[in-house]
Design a protein around this nucleic acid. Structure first.
Ligand SMILES: [Zn+2]
Ligand SMILES: [Zn+2]
Ligand SMILES: [Zn+2]
Ligand SMILES: [Zn+2]
Lengths: 166, 166
DNA sequence: CGCCTTTAGTTATATTATAACGACGGACAG
DNA sequence: CTGTCCGTCGTTATAATATAACTAAAGGCG
């Protein structure tokens, strides 16, 4: 009889996603990290989603690949991907999105990636900005009062262009 | 024998805090809200703290006044205080701070209060900014891509001036 | 192979937040 | 006065998010 092997990413992820995962794998290797099977699956699941996904949503889907996945499985993968800069956490949604820029960053090693996020309250999508003007305004305001910033969370809620036309 | 009455806010809150609570009470009355006893205690506890406080920290302290307080007790008070603009939620800390500006706002009714927060990663204090430059940069960037913003969360992590000198 | 480091499995628990329903009390119309 | 309405609160249970702690396996390397 045929054995019922668990599905692989090949069954579930689009070619575009799998290509991104391959690039991410190379990126990790170049930064002293290993995009292991679990991490790759988690990044793939986040990439395939069109909206931010919660950790337990990821866990549910991950279980279709690995039946014994548990919360630490997901959180460890998320920690790694966050450290590599391959995903972002959206604080206001307690959810995660893929980074739109990291793999295209030309600064080899420690690109100071500072993004802002636009959250559409109608369709739920999140888009990522890299506006130097915002980063500069924040930096200047902090400097003016002697505060040394290390990281800024900027999450803008509103209605996206597409949802305004409906 | 003397009855062991539970402590009142008079026993626990400083005169400055109690004065702020009186002003907040008048503010609520002017905005179709009632600063009830529980809400007043929660706002007082947040005001007395020098750092952001979590909902369950508030609950612990609230129980010294009301022994049967439960999570919904605190969260309902927090929801009210957030709606009135008397406190802010710091997303990155999952904690709450008193608003530094609201009671001084001169716009009667619906002051469009848009603040930014500086979180010191050394001492844990949070200070509130109102930088028009940051708000404008955000608004301009959103407008440029057709996004209509309704609210922006800006939380800047770093080291405060005081902690840098040590 | 033998050793060490990283990664992952497993169980339990911590932390934050909300659902649901009934009771109570003041405001107010009749 | 009295009945109704509505905002508030008490209470119990549960949902949703996240981590601690320990063990086992896997991979890199001399
Ligand atoms: Zn990014
Ligand atoms: Zn939209
Ligand atoms: Zn404020
Ligand atoms: Zn400090």
């Amino acid at each position: 009889m045929l054995t019922t092997a668990p599905p692989t990413e090949r069954d579930q992820f689009s070619p575009g996603t799998r290509q991104l995962l391959d690039r991410a794998s190379a990126y990790c290797a170049a930064h002293a990290g290993r995009l292991t099977e679990t991490r790759r699956l988690v990044l793939g699941l986040i990439t395939e989603a069109s909206k931010p996904v919660g950790a337990y949503d990821i866990l549910d889907h991950l279980r279709s690949f690995q039946k014994n996945a548990a919360p630490p499985t997901v959180y460890r993968a998320l920690d790694f991907l966050l450290a590599q800069g391959l995903i972002h956490r959206i604080e206001r949604l307690t959810a995660f999105v893929g980074c739109a820029h990291r793999l295209d960053c030309t600064h080899e090693g420690g690109c100071g990636h500072r993004a802002q996020f636009l959250i559409c309250s109608v369709c739920g999508t999140v888009s990522e900005l890299e506006e130097p003007g915002i980063a500069r305004a924040i930096h200047d305001a902090a400097k003016a009062i002697g505060f040394r910033p290390s990281h800024a969370t900027v999450e803008i809620e509103g209605v996206c262009a597409q949802c305004q036309t409906r």
